[in-house]
Amino acid sequence: MAINGSTLATLKRGQRGVIRAINSADPQVQRLMVLGLVEGTEVEHASSAIGGDPMEFRLFGCGISLRLEHARHFKVAPVGAGD
């Protein structure tokens, strides 16, 4: 599956994706990596707040909320179609 253009920010609600590449220059993105958002990890877009920002992702059962501006730094390969 092509990963061009797919980021955490473009995952639909309920859709899963495997993180493939991260632009890690931003210290805020590094912080998210410390929380477990690294290449090879599968995540699910669990929810969004009103207006679609911030977004909540689940990985290995834990939930992390990200702002849209940071979610864009994580390229993903989507798994399945979501709902």
Partner: peptide, 27 residues
């Protein structure tokens, strides 16, 4: 590569391996 990013990449790769061995049933 930012050191903190590298640290996270390497350690979480190890964590995923360990999880595969100790976390028996699919959650």
């Amino acid at each position: 590569e930012p050191p903190i990013a590298r640290d996270a990449r390497i350690r979480y790769t190890w964590v995923r391996e360990v999880l595969g061995k100790v976390q028996k049933s699919a959650p």
